[in-house]
């Protein structure tokens, strides 16, 4: 394939991809995988696009999973890893206990207020590029527990999710399908836009000074990390 022939086509796809991203995140390019080298080149030369394709293929074919269980869905997740369904067939079945060595976090269960900051922390501890599979209704919207006083209305309030697998809980086949779709997406160069989530970890001192903050001022240090839940704004 010569450079002249392939260039317009590549630009097209790039533009398409960008417009798709823009549509989803409303401005700003996702530069999660952007390197200094690419910035130095300014545009995207041929050799880097080939390299990109190769890296996407690599990331889409092999992933280490974080050993991470929350609730009901983790039982089906275990079944997905285990004998009958064997997720490892698709190169996605090595569990790592340490988030530093994992690529994909499957979030299998309800996120509650107390766990929100921890989920954020575990996600932050994973090295880029990282991907999130949100498994089950609870991680999508809070599921059957959405009306609970303590339940975060979906994992996406806290971390960006690449793919949602609906079900309560999803069958192992559904999870495998989800992981395959994720791999397909990665191979095509898509990834979830990193946007600011409604619930972020902040230092307590940075919060707006309202009644609640004043009330807690004696219990929490200024530089403690906190997560503020505005339940009234939740979906």
């Amino acid at each position: 394939m010569s450079k002249e022939q392939s260039e317009p086509e590549l630009h097209d796809t790039l533009e398409q991809a960008q417009s798709k991203q823009d549509a989803r995140m409303g401005g700003g390019v996702d530069d999660r995988f952007n390197s200094k080298l690419r910035q130095a080149f300014g545009s995207t030369p041929f050799i880097l696009t080939k390299f990109d394709k190769f890296m996407n293929w690599v990331r889409g074919n092999s992933m280490f999973m974080l050993l991470f269980g929350i609730a009901c869905c983790s039982i089906e997740m275990m079944h997905t890893y285990a004998t009958k369904h064997d997720l490892d067939r698709f190169g996605a079945g090595v569990p790592r206990a340490s988030p530093r060595q994992a690529d994909v976090i499957i979030v299998p269960g309800t996120i509650v207020s107390k766990f929100g900051p921890r989920l954020k922390r575990v996600y932050d501890q994973m090295p880029e590029p990282k991907f999130v599979v949100s498994m089950g209704s609870c991680t999508i919207s809070g599921g059957p527990f959405q009306e609970g006083y303590n339940v975060v209305k979906g994992a996406e309030e806290i971390i960006p999710c690449d793919i949602h697998v609906p079900g309560c809980p999803p069958r192992p086949e559904a999870l495998i399908y989800g992981v395959l779709k994720l791999q397909e997406g990665i191979r095509a160069g898509e990834s979830a836009p990193v946007t600011v989530k409604p619930y972020e970890l902040e230092q307590f001192g940075d919060l707006d000074d309202d009644a609640l903050v004043r009330k807690l001022a004696s219990e929490i240090d200024e530089d403690d990390l906190v997560m503020r839940y505005n339940w009234a704004d939740s979906p």
């Binding site: 890296m55 293929w57 690599v58």
Partner: peptide, 14 residues
């Protein structure tokens, strides 16, 4: 799988 596994592990963020 050896190739993607090796390349991916090395190319991750340190």
């Amino acid at each position: 799988i050896i190739i993607p596994d090796a390349v991916r592990l090395i190319s991750k963020e340190l």
